[in-house]
Nucleic acid binder design. Structure first.
Length: 689
DNA sequence: GCAAGGTC
């Protein structure tokens, strides 16, 4: 038997091949330089077999509309909810597809080794689709692994399963809906707003996406919370005891009062008999926990918060570090190291470094690495860790700082929690209670290598229970409640993760996208505020009574997808329900689009063009009485034509333009990528009015 | 020229 084995990416294919062949694999080039082919022997289903292993680079196929639906001017976006869609190979991956087709011909079996998550299952079915098309009697298997380690992939090969169609179906529904909704709303928003605000919108695209809008929504919500915040004045008592050059502050047990008079009365009472009596002194151990093994989300948050490198840039550099072999795969949700990983060796790589070498040596000399184990695993990738040591001086600046962050995080999580002793002294002044704290750090441990956490000692006098002293001062301090902070990028990523908007691999992209679209902007280089367009859009949809920027729509959809994965719901049913829902939303939006114009007009300085459709020409089909509105502008650019969705696959002799003229072309059009697509129309169109 | 999800 000869099996074709296909992984989701080259790196996975290579490592799986190494593990299964004990390093005896030989490699050759595939048709695309990034995706190599590895060959070795292995035992499959109790039989010695020839193995050919190659990979994709993520999804192989993508969705598209046919002919007229592809063109922004030649169809009503409403039709995109029902227009037929097709999957085709992503143009840059055609060589990968050809490699699969060529390699599978010589094989009798196919083993899918894509990542063991939802998207991976779907990618698996794309591989099956391509391979089955050239070889129809293939024996097909799915390898399920919990990590790409020798142990895990060998177990997977001994326990081959069948691919799970339900999971893949859920992804198909997700893709198709995101695509239809995204295309319909994006075209509508863009085409309309370009006409209503030609100066402000210009040629830019006003996109709608099921992740873009909730992300924008988080920024708007926080901005409003800050804007609408009403500060409330408060008053509080503070006590200070300075002696021998050491100043100790005591905090009031009541924290603060919102009644100035009451606070003044208590202050006066304390000032009248200011002698403080120490009522209690406790000292107890306190520790600060070392970080968990590093995930993508934590990496992005640290880079953004501590190094001021934004998530998109951080991921681009992480990708480069990974490609250079310095760090492990950067997209991971896993925060625990697999048992079989040799952490001692990985720590040992760093013992010669001038900055953290001694720390690494210290870990090895004191019982070895003992990382905390988290509770998340994506089943394919370990946490992010340095795979190789390099002198930081050899790297350019942002890369060096990110490599250092990965190394320091790794060494910190392999180290021990910081330990300290916290002393709390409680005092009583005229029956008011205050407490002061002191912290003595007894073992800094991980903090010595991890500058991203603060924990510092604070001194306190040595007090004894029953002792009395005269405070240096007892003050009445006024203040006012403060608004929440605007969102930083790290906060935004946290919210996205919490509400299930996007994935670890896409958070940074969505944030970048809404910046690019001018929906949000960085206020002071650090915090996000809505930009005029983003704010106006959210307000416009709200005036229509829609909450498209709230995360619950996406959350509901995710719940449906889960039901499909588990076989509890039919994909066609969910698809139909969601399409119907969004179609209704779309109709409402187009009917009340003037409310969006109005909201934006209040934000923009440009006066809106109040009748953006006055130049439109109505087309009507004589046979079906279907109506189509076309702008004069597009009419001049090229004649609108109608593609009949049902007959699309039939190659027809001629088609008819919306102005009634027929063309004798073969009935094939080319798409933007120069590829031929069939479209047809037996309907006749004519201009009305 | 549109989405979101993978990935180089």
């Amino acid at each position: 038997m000869k099996y074709l084995n296909v992984a989701e990416k080259n790196n996975a294919a290579k490592n799986i091949a190494i593990h299964l062949s004990q390093g005896t694999q030989i490699w050759r080039e595939g048709l695309l330089q990034y995706n190599k082919i590895y060959e070795f022997e292995a035992e499959v289903l109790g039989q010695k077999s020839q193995m050919v292993m190659t990979s994709l680079s993520g999804h192989l196929l993508t969705l598209d509309f046919y002919g007229a639906y592809k063109n922004w001017q030649s169809c009503n976006p409403l039709e995109l909810f029902d227009a037929e869609v097709f999957k085709s190979c992503i143009i840059k991956y055609e060589e990968i597809k050809k490699t699969l087709e060529r390699e599978v011909r010589g094989c009798q079996g196919l083993i899918i080794w894509t990542d063991c998550d939802r998207e991976g299952e779907n990618i698996g079915f794309q591989i099956i689709e391509v391979c089955s098309a050239v070889k129809n009697d293939l024996k097909i298997f799915r390898a399920k692994f919990s990590a790409i380690t020798e142990f895990s992939v060998k177990i997977a090969l001994q326990n081959l399963e069948q691919p799970n169609k339900n999971i893949s179906d859920a992804v198909d529904v997700r893709q198709e809906l995101d695509f239809r909704i995204g295309a319909a709303f994006t075209r509508f928003q863009t085409l309309r707003l370009r006409k209503v605000f030609p100066k402000t919108i210009g040629k830019s695209v006003v996109s709608y996406g099921s992740c873009q809008f909730p992300t924008l929504g988080f920024v708007v919500e926080r901005y409003r919370a800050v804007e609408n915040f009403v500060a409330e004045p408060f008053w509080k008592l503070t006590v200070n005891h300075t002696m021998n050059g050491l100043s100790v502050d005591f905090n009031w047990e009541r924290v603060r009062l919102f009644d100035q008079k009451a606070c003044r009365v208590l202050h006066d009472t304390c000032k009248e008999s200011p002698l403080a009596t120490v009522t209690d002194v406790t000292t107890k151990p306190k520790s600060k926990r070392r970080p968990l093994p590093l995930t993508t989300v934590e990496f992005e948050k640290l880079a953004s918060r501590k190094l001021n490198i934004n998530a998109k840039k951080a991921m681009d550099f992480a990708e480069k570090l990974y490609m250079d072999g310095l760090t492990s795969y950067p997209r991971t949700e896993t925060n625990e190291f697999p048992e079989e990983m040799n952490l001692e060796q990985l720590v040992g790589l760093h013992t010669d470094d001038p900055n953290w070498g001694a720390f690494a040596q210290n870990i090895l000399d004191n019982g070895g690495p003992t990382p905390r184990q988290g509770n998340k695993s994506d089943g394919a990738h370990p946490p992010i860790y340095p795979t190789k040591y390099i002198d930081g001086q050899l790297l350019k600046l942002p890369e060096r700082r990110l490599y250092e962050l990965i190394v320091r995080s790794f060494l910190a999580c392999c180290s021990k929690d910081a330990q300290g002793q916290e002393t709390t002294a409680t005092i009583n002044i005229a029956n008011e209670v205050f407490s002061g704290n002191g912290l003595m750090i007894t073992a800094r441990n991980y903090l010595d290598v991890y500058p991203y956490d603060d924990w510092s000692s604070t001194e306190i006098h040595v007090y004894q229970s029953g002792q009395t002293f005269n405070p240096s001062c007892i003050d009445l301090v006024d203040g006012s409640t403060s608004p929440p902070n605007l969102l930083t990028e790290a906060d935004l990523i946290e919210l996205m993760e919490e509400h299930g908007i996007g994935t670890d691999a896409t958070h940074a992209n969505h944030i970048e996208k809404i910046k690019e679209r001018s929906y949000v902007k960085l206020d002071d280089g650090i915090t996000f505020v809505p930009d005029l367009l983003g704010m106006g859009l959210v307000e416009g949809y709200e005036r229509i009574g829609l909450n498209l920027s709230k995360p619950h729509l996406r959350a509901q959809f995710e719940a449906d997808l889960k039901a499909i994965s588990e076989g509890r719901k039919q994909p066609q049913v969910v698809m139909a329900e969601q399409v119907a829902k969004y179609k209704e939303v779309y109709l409402k939006v187009t009917a009340e689009a003037n409310k969006i114009d109005g909201a934006l007009a209040e934000r923009f300085s440009e006066k809106p063009n109040t009748d953006p459709n006055k130049d439109n020409v109505m087309c009507e089909c004589r046979l079906t009485c279907k109506k189509l509105t076309v702008s004069k502008e597009s009419q001049n650019k090229g004649r609108p034509f109608y593609a009949c969705p049902k007959d699309i696959k039939k190659r027809c002799k001629f088609f008819q333009w919306a102005d009634g003229e027929t063309s004798t072309s073969s009935g094939w059009s080319t798409n933007g990528r120069g590829r031929k697509r069939a479209y047809s129309s037996s309907d006749e169109w004519t201009y009305g009015e």
